[in-house]
């Protein structure tokens, strides 16, 4: 049944996400989306916002959006690899260095006609409006420094699931699943050797207190998320409001990537200030990391083929789109 969103010409959408207030996703993503949509619609779009997993855990949000409990919310493929498997392509290692390039490219693949839209989002009745991406996953370790891809062999690393697990495994380390809240203690007590994540995520868990080494530029993968709307709710909206929402989404994608770039930089600084030894990967070493990455891409493509998904096409499309966006950015300069 079509949701009843409208009252006196004003449409109110229930929005939910899994990020704490103040997190870049919530502030520069959902915040900007809602604020701009309100402005662009002349107040005819309103939002009832439930941040910080108030409405459900990250992995449950896609189904809560689908079933209409909320209309719009955060959807991250890494949390629901079984539901949005192909979108994991965006999280593969070695592809994206800059959040703005990455998220704009991925947003295109996730919009109407794009491969991720057709394969993942459309069948689930989800329509991505904002795409956010934390690029540059690094290894943070407690006692064992990582300089080269070989140093990862045999390490046990807390991993957040999805494509990142695959990357960790591909580098010869063992991904260990555990709740994010247990990560701090697990590293400090040596239950695991470390973790892989974007520098922006290290500070909220105070990982700078328990890690001694971090890589810089390892590009172990990314974390991609979207704010997606339930297709049924989208269809209820009049054309001009859809347009407002679409434009607000694009602006939010831009503001979010800028905030994430800054967040990653701040995160690195926090690590440095806390005395964490940063191992910079320079151009010479880059080659070794790229060599280690290639088989992971192949393995991922093969795994997608196993479940009947066009992994090779998605990877090719993403690489093409990344090049195109880079060219466009270059032309703009």
């Amino acid at each position: 049944p079509a949701p009843s969103l409208e009252s006196d010409g004003v449409y109110t959408l229930k929005v939910a996400d899994s990020y704490p207030v103040g997190h870049p996703f919530a502030e520069a993503g959902a915040g900007v989306l809602m604020e701009r949509a309100r402005e662009l619609s002349g107040g005819r779009l309103r939002f009832d916002y439930f941040p910080a997993e108030q409405m459900g855990h990250a992995a449950d949000l896609p189904s809560l959006i689908r079933s209409g409990v909320v209309d719009l919310g955060s959807v991250a493929p890494a949390y629901v690899p079984a539901e949005l498997p192909l979108s994991g392509v965006a999280d593969l290692p070695g592809l994206v260095e800059d959040s703005c390039t990455g998220s704009v490219a991925v947003a295109r693949l996730m919009s109407e006609g794009g491969v991720l839209w057709q394969e993942d989002f459309q069948p689930k009745n989800l329509r991505p409006l904002v795409v956010g991406m934390i690029p540059d996953y690094e290894v943070l370790t407690g006692s064992r420094p990582v300089h080269t891809p070989q140093d990862l062999r045999g390490l046990q690393l807390r991993s957040s699931g999805g494509t990142i697990d695959r990357a960790v495994e591909g580098f010869g380390a063992a991904p260990v699943g555990m709740p994010a809240t247990e990560m701090y203690e697990a590293i400090s007590r040596g239950t695991v050797d470390g973790t892989v994540l974007g520098p922006v995520s290290a500070a909220p868990y105070h990982l700078e207190e328990v890690t001694r080494y971090a890589t810089l530029g390892a590009r172990l993968g990314s974390f991609t998320m979207t704010y997606s709307i339930n297709e049924a709710a989208w269809e209820v909206l009049p054309e001009d409001l859809r347009d407002a929402l679409r434009r607000a989404g694009q602006e939010a994608t831009r503001s979010l990537c800028a905030a994430l770039q800054e967040g990653n930089a701040e995160g690195r600084q926090t690590l440095r200030d806390a005395g964490v030894r940063i191992q910079r990967i320079d151009e010479a070493q880059r080659e070794a990391w790229n060599r280690a990455t290639a088989p992971i891409h192949e393995q991922w493509t093969a795994n997608m083929a196993d479940i009947g998904r066009p992994g090779a096409a998605a990877l090719r499309d993403l690489k093409d789109e990344l090049r195109r966006v880079e060219r466009e950015n270059h032309d703009d300069d």
């Binding site: 539901e83 689930k124 991993s159 494509t163 697990d165 196993d306 998904r309």
Partner: peptide, 14 residues
């Protein structure tokens, strides 16, 4: 009906 399955090679069993 949507044949949801975790891709092989991840942490979850496929």
């Amino acid at each position: 009906s949507s044949r949801d399955i975790p891709p092989p090679g991840g942490a979850e069993l496929s």
